[in-house]
């Protein structure tokens, strides 16, 4: 969510500086007002509503959360929560030493990474396969997007039903002589989660890869054809460089999304979660809303924020680099 608003903010800022340039010609600018202000500064006041909202919706809760992480806040002190005892970094110490937080971080990061590693080739393959026009392409492209438009809750509910012991997936595998074991609990549940995540999120990579492919100039295709490049060489040396930017973005956004994904594991496995899929958001949720350790859970959330801030930082850097180039620029 925060990434969205940040890009939105960036985009609007970019737009405003564009808008500033043709300023003198635009009719709504009264000549008297134009004089007193520098052209660069003029539209900034329009950011106030958005900025105010961001402060209320993002900054204030963030600061409150950080404040809470220093409190011994639970169901007994909730009613007068501001005066809950301040215990400094004890919540952080407990989160790191006496809770499954590190295990949860390890699970979250590894699951996100594994899902990403599979979805990227899938997305590229999907995009390449629907790049050239053929009959029914529009239909195929629409079908590809179905997992992406379905609400996470629906996806998880349907998969959970299919993965129940003795349900369709089990009986299908039994009919070919495989005993798959348990899907929704035990060590295999980790792979179940990755499988469902891949199914749900590969269209996102596909979309970004497709946008990358669209930006390859027609002349480039012709030139490589004239040079006699075969399909693999063409893909490897001509097309892929175009995809680097969009795919890097897909990777980072996807990672953030997976690490933050609560609905999917919550609906698939329920709480208390099997220890093999006790991911970071689930752990934070249970600590907060089942055990009522709000302070401890705020500390966990803060630690996960730092964790997420690392790819976010890389992402923002990437966007900045793209800023000076044309979109989809080859770097």
């Amino acid at each position: 969510m925060s990434t969205d608003s940040l890009t939105a903010g960036k985009a609007s800022r970019r737009k405003s500086s564009h808008a500033a340039k043709p300023g003198p010609q635009s009719p709504e600018n009264a000549p008297r007002r134009r004089k007193g202000l520098s052209e660069r500064n003029r539209p900034l006041w329009m950011l106030i509503p958005g900025g105010l909202l961001m402060v209320i919706i993002i900054v204030v809760p963030l600061l409150l959360g950080i404040f809470m992480s220093g409190l011994d806040l639970d169901q007994y002190s909730l009613r007068k929560w501001v005066s809950a005892p301040f215990i400094g970094v004890q919540n952080f110490v407990e989160a790191l030493t006496a809770s499954p937080l590190l295990h949860a971080i390890w699970l979250s990061v590894s699951y996100s990474l594994l899902a990403m590693v599979v979805t990227i080739p899938l997305g590229i393959a999907g995009a390449v396969a629907t790049q050239n026009a053929f009959k029914g392409r529009a239909v195929i492209r629409s079908i590809f997007l179905i997992p992406y438009v379905l609400p996470s809750f629906v996806v998880a509910t349907v998969w959970r039903t299919m993965f129940q012991p003795g349900s369709v997936i089990d009986s299908a595998l039994h009919s070919v002589g495989i005993d798959p074991g348990l899907w929704l609990n035990g060590p295999q549940s980790f792979w179940t989660l990755i499988l469902v995540q891949i199914w749900a999120s590969w269209p996102f990579v596909y979309l970004l890869a497709l946008s990358g492919l669209q930006s390859v100039d027609h002349e480039v295709h012709e030139a490589s054809a004239l040079d006699g490049a075969l399909w693999w060489n063409k893909l490897r040396y001509v097309v892929f460089p175009y995809l680097k930017g969009p795919l890097a973005l897909a990777f980072l956004i996807g990672m953030l999304h997976h690490i933050n994904n609560f609905t999917l594991p919550f609906v698939l496995f329920g709480v208390p979660a099997p220890s093999d899929v006790e991911l970071l958001p689930i752990l934070t949720y249970v600590t907060s809303f089942q055990s009522f350790r709000f302070g401890l859970s705020a500390a966990m959330a803060f630690i996960s924020l730092i964790l997420i801030a690392i790819p976010l930082f890389v992402y923002l850097r990437a966007v900045k680099l793209d800023d000076s180039e044309t979109p989809g620029g080859k770097k």
Binding site: P165, P272, Q290
Partner: peptide, 20 residues
Amino acid sequence: WGDIQLALLNVVVQSIPDLS
């Protein structure tokens, strides 16, 4: 009690692979 209940339930959740 909420936590105790959760702990009792968790024993069953974590035992399900063995049960299967």
